[in-house]
């Protein structure tokens, strides 16, 4: 296994029924940095992101070819348990989607489904909740409301909670699909800050349609167009001197 690659995609194709949404995608995503997926809407960013933890399979008509290697294993292999895969590749969605249960229960939902209850004492759980909420700097805000419903939090707090609930599972990769699009400017800033801190521990792949955000918050950028990868380079380079004409046109805002 090459430890300088976290997600290694080789000639990956994906169809929704007859419609091919991804064409021969090959890309290497590095650990310990933030990689942005950018491109006009409908170009397949979400589809690619969702392939990394195989939640697209839930749609019955999805078919794939190619390889996606994570931790040295092709995740499309038969002997991969999706539960194990998803434990190590957490996902944050566009709209915050805390479960309609208490804040506390939200954070421990993951460990509870991956650990026999005999191994989960009150102390272990309390500690996991505090650690996770501190890591997303939500602890001070909610420590007195752990028993209240998560859906009563503000959107920003909800999104932080959605990140926090991944942490007790100790994922290697965190996938984020436009994680800030439901938030206001202040919320965006704080979530970006949080993501910047998380990258020390996790590989982060983030879909965004916000050029400024990709530029501010990511180390590398992947530009997609109509299901293909057009360019993948360091953010500074991609925005400073794009190799591809189409990339240039897109970042200047000519389409999308």
């Amino acid at each position: 296994m090459n430890s300088s690659i976290s997600i290694d995609v080789r000639d990956f194709n994906l169809w929704y029924g007859d419609f091919q949404a991804l064409h021969h995608v090959s890309v290497e995503i590095k650990p310990g940095i933030i990689t942005s997926l950018i491109g006009p809407s409908g170009c397949g960013k979400t589809t690619l992101l969702r392939s990394f933890n195989r939640i697209n399979e839930r749609y019955g008509n999805v078919r794939t070819t190619g390889r996606i290697t994570i931790l040295g294993k092709n995740i499309l292999d038969e002997d991969v348990s999706v539960a194990s895969l998803r434990k190590r590749t957490g996902m944050v969605f566009q709209r915050p989607n805390p479960l309609p249960i208490s804040v506390y229960e939200n954070v421990i939902f993951g460990i509870k489904s991956h650990t026999p209850s005999s191994q989960l004492g009150r102390r272990v759980l309390d500690e996991a909740v505090e650690t996770a909420l501190r890591e997303v700097s939500l602890w001070e805000d909610v420590k007195d409301r752990l028993k209240s419903r998560a859906t009563e939090l503000t959107l920003e707090q909800q999104q932080k909670l959605c990140i926090a609930r991944l942490l007790p599972l100790k994922p290697d990769i965190i996938l984020m699909d436009e994680p800030c699009s439901a938030l206001d400017a202040a919320g965006i800033e704080r979530i970006e800050e949080l993501i910047g801190e998380l990258k020390r521990t996790f590989t982060i792949v983030m879909v965004t349609h916000n050029m400024a955000q990709a530029r501010r918050a990511s180390d590398e950028c992947i530009f997609m167009l109509m299901g293909e990868i057009i360019e993948h380079s360091a953010t500074v380079e991609l925005f400073g001197s794009p190799k591809h004409e189409k990339t240039g046109m897109y970042i200047e805002g000519r389409y999308g």
């Binding site: 296994m1 994570i70 931790l71 040295g72 294993k73 995740i75 292999d77 002997d79 991969v80 348990s81 539960a83 194990s84 895969l85 190590r88 991956h114 650990t115 026999p116």
Partner: peptide
């Protein structure tokens, strides 16, 4: 490689 995503006993 050994399979990092093998189902655990609990799973």
């Amino acid at each position: 490689m050994s399979n990092p995503f093998a189902p655990t006993a609990y799973e």
